Computed example of a mutant assay.
Amino acid sequence: MRTTPPEPPSSPQGSLLLDDQLCFALYAASRAVTARYRPLLDALDLTYPQYLVLLVLWERDSISVRDLGAALQLESSTLSPLLKRLEAGGLLRRERRTDDERSVAIRLTDAGAALRDRAAEVPLAIGDAMGLTPEQDATAKQLLRLLTANVSGRGRAQG
């Protein structure tokens, strides 16, 4: 005898409907935003991860590989190939720190610093594409940072 499946919960929590999945909404939004970045970054001959590295360096020109990885939430094994490609492209250089030979400092080259002016249009174009008010933008960032901290275990005690 066949039985009918139980009624889904009245709230999306526990639901197996695709539209109720926050993870899918995040995935779809991430793909859409990254796709919107692609032509803008292609014009700069950059990939999205390379652009993120440069954002950090434009903010803080000299940074250790460890601190750069922490800022981008990337492991050294992921970061090293990115840095090699950016160095080969003449946008940055890696130097052993004189005060600590075990540590490598990342610095922009003149070409890397100059690229900042050309990249200034990117955040404006992305902001226009997102179509959020300044308040919505701030709220979205706040919620995404909270979600990241909670899921990674940095935002609350693990049970």
Score class of each variant (00 low, 15 high):
residue 2 R to G: 08
residue 2 R to I: 12
residue 3 T to C: 03
residue 3 T to Y: 12
residue 7 E to T: 14
residue 11 S to Y: 05
residue 11 S to M: 08
residue 13 Q to C: 01
residue 14 G to V: 04
residue 15 S to N: 10
residue 15 S to F: 06
residue 16 L to V: 11
residue 16 L to G: 12
residue 21 Q to H: 12
residue 24 F to I: 14
residue 25 A to D: 11
residue 29 A to Q: 14
residue 35 A to R: 02
residue 39 P to F: 02
residue 40 L to F: 06
residue 42 D to E: 15
residue 42 D to S: 13
residue 44 L to V: 04
residue 45 D to Y: 03
residue 45 D to W: 02
residue 45 D to G: 04
residue 47 T to M: 04
residue 47 T to F: 05
residue 47 T to Q: 09
residue 48 Y to Q: 08
residue 49 P to E: 06
residue 54 L to I: 01
residue 56 V to S: 05
residue 57 L to C: 05
residue 61 D to R: 10
residue 62 S to K: 12
residue 64 S to Y: 00
residue 64 S to G: 02
residue 64 S to F: 05
residue 65 V to I: 13
residue 65 V to C: 02
residue 69 G to P: 01
residue 70 A to H: 11
residue 70 A to L: 13
residue 72 L to A: 03
residue 72 L to S: 01
residue 73 Q to C: 08
residue 77 S to Y: 10
residue 79 L to H: 03
residue 79 L to C: 02
residue 79 L to R: 00
residue 80 S to D: 09
residue 81 P to V: 02
residue 85 R to D: 11
residue 85 R to C: 04
residue 86 L to Y: 04
residue 88 A to N: 08
residue 89 G to E: 08
residue 94 R to Q: 15
residue 95 E to N: 07
residue 95 E to K: 11
residue 95 E to M: 09
residue 96 R to V: 00
residue 97 R to N: 09
residue 98 T to N: 04
residue 98 T to A: 15
residue 101 E to P: 06
residue 101 E to S: 14
residue 102 R to M: 05
residue 103 S to N: 00
residue 103 S to K: 06
residue 106 I to P: 03
residue 106 I to S: 04
residue 109 T to I: 11
residue 109 T to C: 07
residue 110 D to E: 15
residue 110 D to K: 12
residue 111 A to R: 15
residue 112 G to I: 07
residue 113 A to P: 03
residue 113 A to Y: 09
residue 115 L to P: 00
residue 116 R to F: 11
residue 118 R to C: 03
residue 118 R to M: 01
residue 118 R to A: 15
residue 120 A to F: 07
residue 120 A to I: 02
residue 120 A to V: 06
residue 121 E to P: 01
residue 121 E to M: 07
residue 122 V to D: 01
residue 124 L to E: 10
residue 124 L to V: 13
residue 130 M to R: 14
residue 131 G to M: 06
residue 132 L to W: 12
residue 133 T to E: 10
residue 133 T to D: 09
residue 134 P to K: 03
residue 136 Q to T: 12
residue 137 D to V: 09
residue 139 T to E: 14
residue 139 T to I: 13
residue 140 A to V: 15
residue 140 A to R: 15
residue 141 K to V: 14
residue 142 Q to T: 15
residue 143 L to F: 13
residue 146 L to T: 12
residue 147 L to I: 01
residue 147 L to V: 05
residue 148 T to N: 07
residue 148 T to W: 12
residue 149 A to E: 10
residue 151 V to P: 00
residue 156 R to D: 08
residue 157 A to G: 09
residue 159 G to I: 07
